[in-house]
Design a protein around this nucleic acid. Structure first.
Lengths: 243, 243
DNA sequence: CGTCTCATTGAGCTATATCAACATCCGTGG
DNA sequence: CCACGGATGTTGATATAGCTCAATGAGACG
């Protein structure tokens, strides 16, 4: 928990940041980055390590620099529901709630940029564009959650899986990752936890999509997906606003 | 669509507002209310009238003054999923998205306070506490959506219905409405659309709760619920953060 | 009083969960 | 290099929660 360690090259960290153009700081001019640098700390998590638990005091917001985390809620009996997958550039945290409403655990080795709540809110005063950016990220998160409600509440298993694949594809396009073979950041069982399904159902849906020829799965590497017919996949996902 | 009509008693409307202490404006001092009054317009909707549709240009945010609305998303084939029920004091809208991600329709005769996007954002500059309040409302909305994802993704029908009743009860307590007999703002089929269930399943769950003696339903008035054993209902809802 | 909407209840159906077997990959240690 | 064990994924057989379809009743409203 080396949260407040000094870093010799402090003023330079933010301007060299891997997610400079994706994270909330993208709203800031180069010249104002120093203010973030001052309050920011880096944190490393190994795969499986817990970042925060539901109910924890919400002292920090975080930006993902490298790796991946899952954000989830659990019921007392252990049933768990994934809410988000965090990848580089993604934002985590609440700025006006006392406690986190979810838990977050690293899926792989992960690097984070932690911003303590109070100092961050102070920066808002001088830089409304940063606050605007945080608000935009939260609104994106809300839109994602609402899309997930629609998906889990009203779509069939196949539609959900198809939609999930398309969403991963869109994300990869947006951040410039490989899309031709796409690497899924989640196991089948995690995909199930995200979509409100079981491992087996996810696996069966993947097989069905493969059988239909819409996607291909690298033999022996279930996490590598190739899209053969995005339009067809999109139809199968029942995506889109009604006419 | 008398959106921009002048109102003779303009400066007084906000200070007399029925939801003065609930809505985003609660963050403002009495003396600053005039700034809201200036940009605000009232709007009336009859039951069933559409306020906005998914994909509409997001020109306004709104506060509910009176009545009730449902917020929902639909699939092209008509399946629809309720996302929220808006009651007096509730906030609707996005401040940094171009288009609404959902539709909103009045459930009953409804009075709204509309705030056009751009002018509102201008008020933020002079009154960061207002922006903070908007952010807090959006974060509450996000927490609600994430709770809904957990509920729909992982809970049984009975748990969802029990949780729904408790949430309505909590809301009534918070805003000071009657709780002893509680009046539900939704029909069985709307409750189903909110919980990812069918009318029949909601009805059966209600009956089961009644049979268990946990609630009572006013004969001939299915929307009037009495809570006989809140603790038991809470157990049945599998609520709460894991130990 | 019809007629409409809403709620309830029953009977059967089906999508998905559950339980179980097996395959594959990967790392570890002999 | 190979044998082993533990994840992870796939597939099959069966169970079941919740859906669909259908009938009926009870208020509300003209």
């Amino acid at each position: 928990m080396n949260r407040l360690q000094a870093c010799p090259a402090a003023a330079a960290r933010c301007s060299k940041c891997a997610v400079r153009r994706l994270a909330i700081c993208a709203a800031l001019e180069e010249s104002d980055l120093g203010e973030m640098d001052e309050i920011m700390t880096h944190k490393h998590l190994d795969a499986g390590q817990v970042l925060l638990l539901e109910g924890d005091y919400a002292a920090y917001v975080a930006n993902v620099l490298k790796g991946a985390l899952k954000v989830f809620k659990s019921l007392p009996d252990g049933r768990t529901q994934l809410l988000r997958i965090l990848l580089p550039g993604d934002f985590l945290g609440a700025t006006s709630r006392d406690h986190y409403g979810y838990s977050a655990v690293a899926l792989t080795d992960t690097e984070l940029c932690l911003l303590p709540h109070r100092p961050l809110v102070s920066v808002f005063q001088a830089h409304p564009e940063l606050e605007e950016s945080v608000r935009a990220h939260i609104e994106d998160e809300l839109a994602e959650a609402q899309e997930q409600v629609l998906s889990i509440g009203r779509k069939t298993a196949l539609e959900r899986v198809a939609g999930f694949l398309l969403a991963r594809r869109q994300h990869a396009l947006r951040v410039g990752n490989s899309v031709d073979p796409l690497k899924l950041p989640l196991t089948r069982s995690e995909i199930g936890e995200y979509l409100g399904l079981t491992t087996e159902t996810v696996s069966r849906c993947m097989t069905r999509l493969k059988t239909k020829g819409v996607i291909s799965l690298a033999p022996g590497h279930a996490e590598i997906v190739t899209f053969n017919d995005v339009e067809r996949l999109s139809d199968l996902a029942s995506a889109g606003v009604p006419a």
